[in-house]
Design a protein around this nucleic acid. Structure first.
Ligand SMILES: [Zn+2]
Ligand SMILES: [Zn+2]
Ligand SMILES: [Zn+2]
Ligand SMILES: [Zn+2]
Lengths: 143, 143
DNA sequence: GCTAAACCCTGTAGCCGCTACAGGGTCAAG
DNA sequence: CTTGACCCTGTAGCGGCTACAGGGTTTAGC
C-alpha cells in the first residue's frame, strides 16, 4: 500500500482526468504536490478527497471560482458558512432560470417537430425560422 | 430610404451585435458584403433576413453548424427537408436530456438549501461535498 | 542487460460563440 | 475644421477542459 500516488493513480481514485488535474493545479484549485527527483508529481490521500470535492461541486454545476471559495471554507471549520449558503441559493436560482429557458425552447421545438412536408419549401422549421406566414398562418397544407 | 445598410444599421435591424456579425462573416454564415471605396461594409435587406434567421436559430439553441446547414436548405426549396426534421428531433432530445440533468441538480441543491448551521463545520453543503457522514447520516443536529 | 510499453513531463493550441480591446481610418453635423 | 460617431483589422480573452507534440522515466518480461 503506497503512501503516495502518481497522477495516473490519483486520476483513477478521484475520477478526474489527468489533464484536468494539471489544469486545476495551474489554476490553484489543487496545491502543487511534491515531486520525485525526476519531476513526477506525488500526491497524498488528502488530494483524492480534495479532487472528489471539486468533482462533486462540478457535478452540481458550480463554477471553479465558487468551488475555490467553498474549499477555502472547509479549511476553516469555525468560520460562518453563510457564503456557502448564499452560493447555494444563487446557484439554485440560476439553475431554475436555465430550466425555464430550456423548457421554453423545448415547447417551441415541439411545435416544429413532426413536419409533414417533403420539401424545404413548406418545412415547418424553415418557415418558422424565416418567419414566413405560409403553412402556419395562412393555413396552407403541404401534400 | 437607403437601399444599403452599414454594419451598425444591420445590427440594429437584426438585433445582432456588430462584432457577432463580423464573426459570422469570418465563419462563412453570412456572405461577405460589398464594400465602399473606403472599405466599409454595405448590406442589403436580404442580409437582415439571414441574420434574423440565424438569431432565431440560436434562440432555439441550435449550433452554428446546424444553422449553416439549415441556411443551405432555404436556398434550395425543392430539396427534401428530412435533414431539417432530423435536426429538430436530435436537438429536442438533447434539450430534454439537458433539462433532466438540470432537474436532478436542482433537486440535489434543494436538499442542501436552508442550512441551519452557523459554522462551516456542520454546513449542509460542505458536508455533502466532502461526503462526510455527519449531520445527514449520523443525525447530528447543529445548534 | 535490453527493449518495449506504459507512464510521466512541459508547453501550446483548439473547442464554442461570442466579446472586448488596441490602434488606426472615415464620415457628417455644426 | 473640429468633434464625435462610426467603421476597419487583428488579436486575445472568457470557462472548463481536452488533445496533441516532443520529449524523459519507469517497469515488466525475456
Ligand atoms: Zn408552407
Ligand atoms: Zn420539414
Ligand atoms: Zn454535521
Ligand atoms: Zn451552511
Amino acid at each position: 500500500m503506497p503512501t503516495t500516488l502518481t497522477i495516473g493513480k490519483l486520476g483513477q481514485a478521484s475520477g478526474v482526468n489527468i489533464e484536468t488535474i494539471r489544469y486545476y493545479e495551474r489554476n490553484g484549485l489543487l496545491p502543487s504536490p511534491t515531486r520525485s527527483s525526476s519531476g513526477y508529481r506525488h500526491y497524498r490521500e488528502d488530494d483524492v478527497k480534495r479532487l472528489r470535492f471539486i468533482r462533486r461541486g462540478r457535478e452540481l454545476g458550480f463554477g471553479l471560482e465558487e468551488i475555490r471559495s467553498l474549499l477555502q471554507l472547509t479549511d476553516q471549520p469555525q468560520q460562518p458558512c453563510d457564503t456557502a449558503d448564499q452560493l447555494v441559493q444563487k446557484h439554485m436560482a440560476e439553475v431554475d432560470a436555465r430550466i425555464r429557458d430550456l423548457q421554453a425552447i423545448r415547447a417551441a421545438l415541439g411545435q416544429l417537430a413532426g413536419c409533414q412536408s417533403q420539401t424545404a419549401e413548406h418545412c415547418r422549421l424553415l418557415e418558422a425560422l424565416e418567419e414566413r406566414d405560409c403553412c402556419i398562418k395562412s393555413g396552407h397544407v403541404p401534400d
